[in-house]
């Protein structure tokens, strides 16, 4: 199957930004791709900006997946690093595809995976720190938990 990957995608794949395991992260998001069975892990460290708001101070990923999944992970970390948690919560994963220029249609789900990993990482941070969890975030989290179960059952 020919995959017309954009230059930007290839660049991120060749030299991914912010990858590798993080020591003592404040939140971890682990997601599996229901479509192809791939796995992504996202680590975040949370700090405060001058206004005292929670921000994503540091972020890194580990991805077992295709070129598009690796490039999407890298792009995501670029896009949300330094953002406030509030901004990160409302992050639109379409931005990943836009940031990369484009993705082949059959590979859009790989960028969805990256977006979901972010949701999970933030959710884990909020839970751990007993902070209030916005409803939309919680809903998506529950959906993902259900999908995870399905993946386990099918594999």
């Amino acid at each position: 199957m020919p995959l017309p990957y954009s230059k930007k995608v290839i660049q991120h794949f060749n030299k991914p930004h912010n990858y590798g395991k993080m020591k003592n992260p404040d939140g971890i998001g682990e997601v599996g791709n229901i479509i192809c069975g791939d796995v992504m892990k996202l680590y975040i460290k949370v700090g405060q900006n001058k206004k005292g708001q929670d921000i994503i101070k540091d972020i890194s990923f580990e991805t077992f997946g295709c070129l598009a999944a690796i490039a999407s992970s890298s792009m995501l970390t670029d896009l949300v690093k330094g953002k406030t948690l509030e901004q990160a919560i409302s992050f639109d994963r379409k931005e990943i595809v836009e940031g990369l220029g484009s993705l082949p249609p059959i590979k859009i789900h790989c960028s969805v995976l990256a977006g979901d990993a972010l949701i999970e990482a933030i959710h884990s941070y909020l839970t751990k720190n007993k902070k209030p969890i916005p409803q939309a975030l919680n809903k998506r989290h529950q959906q993902l938990a259900k999908e995870k179960q399905e993946i386990k059952e099918t594999h």
Binding site: Y5, I10, N14, D38, F64, G65, C66, L67, A69
Partner: peptide, 10 residues
């Protein structure tokens, strides 16, 4: 531990 398409593309 490594996905095939990413090996192929590399």
């Amino acid at each position: 531990g490594v996905e095939g398409e990413s090996i192929l593309m590399a």
